[in-house]
Design a protein around this nucleic acid. Structure first.
Lengths: 200, 200
DNA sequence: GCCGCTATCTTGACACTGTCAAGACTGGAG
DNA sequence: CTCCAGTCTTGACAGTGTCAAGATAGCGGC
């Protein structure tokens, strides 16, 4: 556990990711600078570059972890079983909102423009992120099929539209734009109604 | 039109906003630096500070213009008259998506975290942004009332949820996350279905 | 045990950013 | 004409990501 501070750190990369997460929580995504991170980890400013190609690569790695959690969250949601549809959706929606609002900086990193538009996202990030979505779409497809609704290519579209609702809600909430944290409960319920309504 | 380049520019501020918009389009929100802007406008780097307190203030001013356009767009939408509901909503949704995807950088600026969370938004920005939303909520309230649905505090919640859907869709589209530009037509139609379904 | 190779870490330097401080100009009011 | 307040400028500083080149150390082969 306690390490004599030798020239070779031994387990940088992991330490970097850990400290980066803490720094993210503390200073936000804009406050996360490689130099601060290096200093905090007790290493010189260029050391991280031996474990990550870029600042972008480091952020992508961090975001990828987040998407793994998100995927687990989708798996946990009781969307498929004979369970009540509204109840299942409500659970997922609440879980998603909670995930996003508990760690806003992390969520912003995962879905933020800096990674996806400005810096090119890593292949690993792309894959992990889309895996979570694909899983969600499959679940929704199962529901549609079981309720034998007019299917078509609809499951995908519905998954996109409903995820957009969730995502937009989280963004508005986290940035404090049109919906207040105090409204969270009621608005999320309205979102559930939206999704359920279209599923009948 | 042609100005002898005198010591006093005469109409900076306006020129700054104009050039800033162009620079935004060209280099994206991250590429918009005050120094580049100043040089492009043909003025020294500190000149903008006599017309805007901050970089933040300048960006807020730019975003405010955007929200004025958005408000006009809400006003244009045929949401209230006896017109077919689906048709009216579809028009608004398409208009909104078009607004966001035609000028992604501008949209990102308007609703982005840098202004709303990191830097404190100007009072003017706050006001303009919320005015647009309020107008939208009123329209929706009118629809609900005319169709005498169970009202309650629902208009506001519905406005929040549906705006979130739109917003999330635009974000996903512009950042290229779960929904591709090629899917735009179909997904937006699904969004319309979402909103209409919950209005019955 | 020793040599050398390679992964790892370091310091120096550069171009870039936003902004504080202090000076230079100038158009208009008195 | 004078002076002043509004406008613009240059100098400086701390902070950023990252290229280049040097320092260190652990590990396999002899």
């Amino acid at each position: 556990m306690d390490k004599a501070p030798s020239y070779h750190h031994g387990d940088l990369r992991a330490a970097l990711l850990r400290e980066a997460d803490a720094l993210l929580r503390q200073d936000g995504i804009n406050g996360l600078s490689l130099r601060k991170l290096a200093e905090r980890t007790g290493v010189s400013r260029m050391a991280p570059y031996h474990h990550f190609q870029d600042k972008n690569a480091l952020l992508c790695a961090l975001a990828t972890e987040g998407f793994h959690e998100l995927e687990a969250l989708v798996d946990l949601a009781q969307l498929d079983e004979g369970q009540d549809l509204t109840q299942g959706l409500r659970g997922f929606v609440h879980g998603y909102l909670r995930f996003a609002t508990d760690h806003p900086e992390r969520y912003e990193l995962m879905f933020g423009r800096p990674l996806w538009k400005a810096g090119a996202p890593t292949d690993a990030l792309r894959e992990t992120a889309f895996a979570a979505f694909r899983r969600y779409a499959e679940r929704l497809g199962g529901i549609i099929q079981r309720a034998n609704l007019p299917e078509g290519a609809r499951p995908l579209r519905l998954a996109q539209a409903s995820w957009a609702t969730l995502h937009g809600l989280c963004k508005l909430l986290n940035d404090g734009i049109y919906v207040d944290r105090a409204d969270m409960e009621e608005v999320s319920e309205e979102a559930v109604r939206l999704m359920v309504a279209v599923l009948r």
